[in-house]
């Protein structure tokens, strides 16, 4: 397995550029068979460059969702090319998401900090990315409490407002207040302040190879 993991993470900014490139190529060339070849090639390419797990994780979701939409479009139009178009479009998006999933929020934040991005943006990004797990837990707890208090179905708008949104937003506010205090008392400050980056993100040869590979592959698929 470690053979496929030349580098743990792609240079974060290159990952963004690669994602955009893949989506744009996939949208522009969606109707062509060469787009499918490009996407298959890109899939293996990004796997080699450290996105192995996320690629594997996205594959079954892509097969189900992409397959469903392709089948629907084939049934609606009766033309095989519209199914191919849908499969390519979804392929592009799922590949971009796979790259996004493999970029750790901490590396992205450190990369942006290194590039002297405003601290408000780096902090916001760090929290927004790391909070999805916490939010999922909070949502589950509120829903469980609804159940135990016999609040009824979440599909009822009145109940959804009262028994779900009110406790949920209350929790968000409380978490936010505690977290803000914690961040501030741990020395975080906005504006022009001195700070360091514990582990710097540097561009490696493999990063350049990764990005060039995507761009060359896409361009070849357009040209040929």
């Amino acid at each position: 397995m470690s053979f496929f993991r030349i580098k743990k993470n792609v240079y974060p900014l290159f990952a963004i550029v690669a994602s955009i490139a893949i989506i744009v190529y996939a949208l522009v060339m969606a109707k062509r068979a060469s787009c499918s070849y490009f996407l298959i090639g890109a899939y293996f390419w990004i796997m080699i460059f450290g996105c192995f797990r996320s690629c594997l994780r996205m594959l079954p979701i892509y097969i189900i969702v992409g397959g469903l939409f392709s089948a629907l479009f084939y049934l609606a139009t009766g033309v095989a090319s519209s199914a191919l178009t849908m499969a390519n479009r979804f392929g592009g998006i799922f590949l971009a998401v796979a790259i996004g999933m493999s970029v750790e929020s901490v590396t992205m934040t450190r990369n942006l900090s290194q590039l002297r991005c405003p601290r408000s943006v780096t902090l916001g990004m760090l929290i927004a990315t790391s909070f999805t797990t916490v939010l999922r837990t909070e949502i589950n707890r509120v829903r469980e409490s609804m159940k135990t208090r016999g609040a009824g179905s979440i599909l009822n708008p009145k109940i959804f407002y009262r028994a779900f949104l009110i406790p949920f937003v209350t929790r968000l506010v409380k978490i936010s207040d505690t977290l803000a205090l914690s961040v501030e008392t741990r020395g975080f400050a906005l504006g022009k302040v001195e700070y360091t980056v514990y582990k710097k993100e540097n561009i490696a040869f493999s990063d350049i190879l990764f990005l060039v590979g995507i761009i060359v592959g896409g361009t070849l698929a357009v040209v040929l």
Binding site: A128, L172, S176, V183
Partner: peptide
């Protein structure tokens, strides 16, 4: 903007994103 503003806006953003996870399905 204070730190507590940024933190709250970030958490609200995370919330919007979690509930907006259907985006990749809708775009096509």
């Amino acid at each position: 903007f204070k730190i507590k503003d940024i933190v709250f806006l970030a958490i609200i953003t995370a919330c919007t994103l979690v509930t907006g996870a259907v985006m990749p399905l809708l775009v096509n």
